[in-house]
């Protein structure tokens, strides 16, 4: 059997506002517009994903928060209604999805072998969390690729960021090894925002963009620092400052999704592609792609401009 590989990794945040603004038939509420820059970023990610011929999406979601280890979906098919408990006015989504249970079990087994506390979720009545649904929908709205959904082990709150990261490093490696053994082409989605301090009030028209901006400047500075490290391929440094970033920007990286992703990608030293950055009800969100086939590419701030000129762009 051919060795499987991770063909794409992405930071794929899950604000329900983005699904709401896109008006897919599965979602009950309807919007006029909103958060276009982020949605255009997701469009670019979709194109990239479509080119990679992916067999499975593996998503790690902060909104399936478990305290007793990491859990994996272990039922082949789920169909139901997901209503966001925080933004029920925006997200009431009828989902119908398939799970790659075989790969779920493989990651479970690899993680168990590394000493992690793990569980398979086999209750067919289980409701899929909205983080998983939103990241998957925005990355692949056709819903024609099976998923593996991984819960977020709440270690950052129970202990601290360092303990959480130590476990996510192992989980990332377990994911990578399982994918390689599976022979499948996998895309990994880390379903988290960057800075995560919300506004606590909402405009009467939720998609009124005149109200939308980052919650505070310090969050913005932190988000830019993190994105700069991603673009430079300095993900080991990003790992090291993750605890400070998480605390000072109230970042959603406390769920471990980003650490898991970077570990599974072997801490890329090649540049990430930032498809978009924008705020959603004050939180900082970026759609960022890592293409492991870019391993030999080095960061150069002029690279994109040179490529653009070579394609006939304005001088």
């Amino acid at each position: 059997m051919k060795q499987g590989e991770i063909v794409l990794g992405a930071l794929a945040p899950h604000p329900p506002h983005l699904v709401y603004a896109e008006n897919p038939p599965q979602n009950e509420p309807k919007a006029e517009c909103g958060w276009e820059v982020l949605r255009w970023g997701y469009e670019r990610l979709r194109k990239s994903l479509a080119q990679r011929k992916v067999d499975v999406l593996i998503v790690h979601s902060p909104h399936w928060r478990t305290m007793t280890g990491t859990h994996f979906l272990g039922v082949e098919h789920f169909k139901g209604l997901s209503v966001d408990p925080v933004f029920p006015n925006l997200f009431r989504f009828h989902y119908d999805l398939k799970v790659d249970v075989e790969l779920s079990r493989q990651i479970f087994t690899e993680a168990q072998g590394l000493g992690l506390e793990v569980q398979m979720m086999t209750n067919p009545d289980f409701r899929i969390d909205y983080g998983t649904i939103i990241s998957c929908h925005l990355s692949r709205p056709e819903w024609d690729i099976p998923i593996v959904a991984i819960s977020s082990h709440g270690l950052a709150r129970y202990f601290n960021m360092e303990v959480m990261q130590a476990v996510m490093l192992k989980l990332g490696q377990a994911t990578k090894v399982a994918v390689e053994k599976s022979g499948k082409r996998a895309a990994l989605l880390a379903s988290n925002s960057l800075s995560h301090r919300h506004f606590v009030v909402e405009p009467e028209v939720p998609e009124d963009m005149s109200f939308e901006h980052i919650q505070n400047h310090s969050q913005y500075l932190w988000d830019m620092k993190v994105l700069d490290l991603m673009k430079r391929g300095q993900t080991q440094e990003l790992l090291e400052i993750m605890p400070d970033f998480t605390e000072q920007a109230v970042a959603e990286t406390d769920g471990g999704s980003l650490t898991w992703l970077l570990s599974a990608l072997d801490f890329p030293t090649y540049p990430a592609e930032v498809h978009a950055y924008g705020s959603v009800i004050g939180t900082g969100n970026a759609i960022v792609e890592w293409n492991p086939h870019n391993r030999q590419v080095e960061w150069n701030p002029h690279n994109r401009q040179v490529e653009w000129r070579a394609q006939g762009g304005a001088q």
């Binding site: 399936w64 478990t66 859990h71 029920p88 569980q119 979720m121 209750n123 289980f126 606590v200």
Partner: peptide, 23 residues
């Protein structure tokens, strides 16, 4: 997150599964 929510649906029916203790 958005202020305070008050659940007041006259009748609500569902089958609930706990995200942690689903087993």
């Amino acid at each position: 997150v958005i202020g305070h929510q008050i659940f007041a649906r006259p009748e609500t029916t569902w089958t609930h599964v706990d995200e942690e203790f689903h087993a």
